[in-house]
Design a protein around this nucleic acid. Structure first.
Lengths: 137, 137
DNA sequence: CGGGATCCTTTAGGATACTG
DNA sequence: CAGTATCCTAAAGGATCCCG
């Protein structure tokens, strides 16, 4: 978690080299990508794309996430600078989460991806059935 | 894995309702999304975005993936209709993987995301250091 | 209310050996 | 070569309790 290995070697202009960092496993960009694309990361980013929310509001928006996982996910995203956390040290405490400017840009890409997948779902379900039929037939 | 629950209830035009399926945990779109955004899914899709490859070629392109996980990942993506698998029943066998038309569109979004993250890495690393310093200081 | 700490279960994932 | 099967370990993830 705290390992920050150097991997910004010489970057050629070729596409293969452009993707080098992500394909190489010891690179921090892979970890960052996983924070965003992980099971709860995408959903948290998409939820925050709609505005500012408190912890338990987010929990209700992202169905099925546990307290532990939401806290963990938000911390990783905050550490990477995608999410901003505004805490009031009152009792009871009030903490508001929102996207940073960088986070907003990236969240837009993720929302685009979600919409793309949503739109394809009928095709995906059909493909699943064809695949399973071909396998069991 | 084989549960295909219905979730295409009434879909309103509101943004919240548009995202409903993905936020609801029992929906197949979440599973599909995870196939694409999972640890090896993104990398496999990005690798295939560059062309057609054989199994072991892909294994070399996606550093660190085991045989088992690559096979599993490709099967999920094939089942969802993102990846096409062309097998020749010769000895030794020859199997070629490529993206379907749907897969190409979605892979483009994923590659865009990867490039976005790559471009942000200097900022992310700086944010990480700020976060850690604030926590330990 | 927003977490942290603890404990426990489930899944992901790697290593190896084997087969058509 | 392209997997499958088996076994095993590490990590993800959930439930519960607690505290400011």
């Amino acid at each position: 978690m705290s390992e920050v290995s150097e991997c910004a070697v010489e970057r050629e202009t070729e596409h293969d080299q452009l993707l080098f960092d992500v394909f190489a496993q010891r690179c921090p960009s892979r970890a960052t990508l996983e924070h965003l694309t992980g099971r709860w990361g995408v959903l948290a980013m998409a939820a925050l794309h709609d505005g500012t929310f408190r912890f338990n509001e987010l929990r209700r928006r992202v169905h099925g996430v546990s307290e532990k996982m939401l806290a963990q996910t938000l911390q990783a995203l905050e550490r990477d600078g995608f999410v901003h956390r505004e805490a009031q040290h009152t009792i009871p405490p009030k903490v508001e989460y929102s996207l940073t400017d960088r986070g907003k840009r990236t969240a837009a890409l993720l929302v685009e991806l979600i919409h793309d997948v949503e739109a394809q779902m009928p095709d995906v379900i059909a493909a699943n059935q064809r695949y399973d039929a071909a396998k069991n037939g």
